[in-house]
Design a protein around this nucleic acid. Structure first.
Lengths: 141, 141
DNA sequence: GAGTAAATGCGAATAATTTGCAAAAGGCGG
DNA sequence: CCGCCTTTTGCAAATTATTCGCATTTACTC
């Protein structure tokens, strides 16, 4: 089963309706290698010839986040970016404040250490957020 | 020398003017144990009987951040919070989803690696965010 | 104390996101 | 396949945090 279909099913299994707009937003995020803003998604979907309203994009993204299917990242750029939560594979990002692009970081601070090393006591870690901001090669110069 | 005065001096040493408004914003942040939003600061200063404009609070905070004297944190919910950088110490936190407490993390993922190791190319890093969520010892059991 | 550049106040402008409401459409039962 | 009922969408207007332009004020240098 394709990644798309897994998300389609997750929508339905939560009692939500699988509308054309929701499919389009999911397809867009599945196809993207980097987190996208609501406007990015809006434009991508428009370009594919599917009509969608920006408010609907926002509402769909809220729904995905509330359902635990997507994550809101990169808030320091005065704008939210969204990325799907995919199985075990998890990534962190570098956000360029110049051009707005984002790049995968090659490491994860939590994965590379044991729990004892990570925190003072034997706490239980459920999730984490790690983001680096700055300027990419082009925008630095 | 008081903490206040250290910040007052830092302002001047950067060629910036030490105005009544800047003093008020700094005093407010020095007195607070937690990060404050621009509006928090605006209201606190007003309450002390000092006139200040919200735009001035924003400009002052920008100035402090650009000068490396303050940090912008907690962008989570569409609003920025500010906290003074005290000494060289910069911290990341573990947030317990059970009791809501937060604990300092003993390490920083950015500090402990070189730029080449951190990102694909020689990008410029300006800031980062690193937060771990889970349950503390008491809330785990 | 005067001159000058920097900072402030004010109001209006932005930009991202949210909301109210009527119309459209998904998905259930028949 | 049809209709019903509820959810979702589109649209336009509202909100919210933050920024900007510009005239006025003020800190700091000489």
């Amino acid at each position: 089963m394709s990644v798309r279909n897994i998300f389609y099913r997750s929508i339905k299994s939560r009692g939500l309706r699988l509308t054309a707009q929701r499919k389009a937003v999911i397809d867009c995020l599945v196809a993207s290698k980097k987190p996208l803003s609501a406007e990015d998604i809006y434009l991508h979907v428009q370009r594919r010839g599917l009509g969608i309203n920006l408010a609907t994009v926002y509402r769909t993204l809220d729904t995905l986040v509330e359902s635990g299917l997507a994550e809101r990242v990169g808030m320091e750029l005065h704008r939210a970016y969204y990325t799907l939560c995919r199985g075990r594979k998890h990534l962190h990002h570098f956000f360029c404040k110049g051009c707005g692009n984002s790049y995968d970081l090659p490491h994860c601070p939590v994965k590379e250490r044991t729990t004892e090393d990570l925190i003072p006591e034997a706490f239980t870690v459920t999730s984490h957020r790690y983001e680096v901001y700055g300027y990419c090669g082009k925008c630095s110069s």
